[in-house]
Amino acid sequence: MLLYIIRRLISVALTFFVVSVIIFLMMHSIPGGPFDGNDMPVSEAVRAKLMARLGLDQPLHVQYLNYMWGVLHFDFGVPYQSPGESVIQLLSRAWVPSLVLGGLGVILGAPLGILLGMAAALNRNSIIDYFASTFATLGLTIPVFVISMLLILVFAVWLDWLPASGWGSPDRWILPIAAYAAIPIATYARYTRSAMLDCLNRPFVTVLRAKGLSENRIIFQHVLRNAAIPMVTVFLPMFIGTATGSIFVETMFRVPGLGAYFVSSIEARDYPLEMALVLMVTLMFCLAYFLADIAYAWLNPRIRVGGDH
């Protein structure tokens, strides 16, 4: 098991490296640069000087190595948009709203989705099942920004119960959290339902019934444990996947979080900020897959114990 973990860690590190190279290259191969925009007209000489100071005139591989060397020292450079602070400072400021809203959305949404999926699987073809399936399909097909707009329209404009946007007082959090939660509820409900149904149809469940175990024991000890195996592999990366939803939610609700900076850094060719954000998301994905692999191995004796007959 320990060797397994080490092997996974090595592969995570490799993945991270490859992804960082690809992103670096892609970002720099997009036509245009930070000083090409109309809103920052500079002369050729000034531009060359600026490029030289930022190291943008050097060959790409040198730029990459310089950058990664800095990253290893937690130096992500200075955002071009806000030169008064470092990328780290900017990120640690922008983290908070994203983490609070996104985190709460997922923490509230995931268990709700799982419970909904379980209820649907255990009461197959009942009202609960139809409701859950409809809800999941809607949640997955309606884009987040439409959900956000609907929430604003209903609860802020028509009913006037809650403020429509901003950051600060907790009552402003409710609508973005609801928007964030919609995707986890829908996806988790769907996956839980199909994972549970898949397990309930397996022959060993009939054997467990034939042994005279109570239905509760069968569901909560055996079926859930087996259903958890495919679920962890999907759920952990999905957790991170909600991060991409932040772009829309934070734009709609005008929250000054990471999502908002994501959009503006791409527009402004703000390489240091952009790179830091993408690397952060990549790292979170890598870690999520790593944890998912470990959880999968831990839950699955075929990997944990090995020794196939």
Binding site: F204, T206, V207, G212, R225, N226, P301, R302
Partner: peptide, 20 residues
């Protein structure tokens, strides 16, 4: 079930819960 009447099945490979 299991006490007065027990049952065994065709495919022993799928008849046990794989995680216990």
């Amino acid at each position: 079930r299991g006490r007065a009447a027990a049952m065994i099945f065709q495919d022993p490979m799928t008849a046990f819960d794989p995680v216990f």
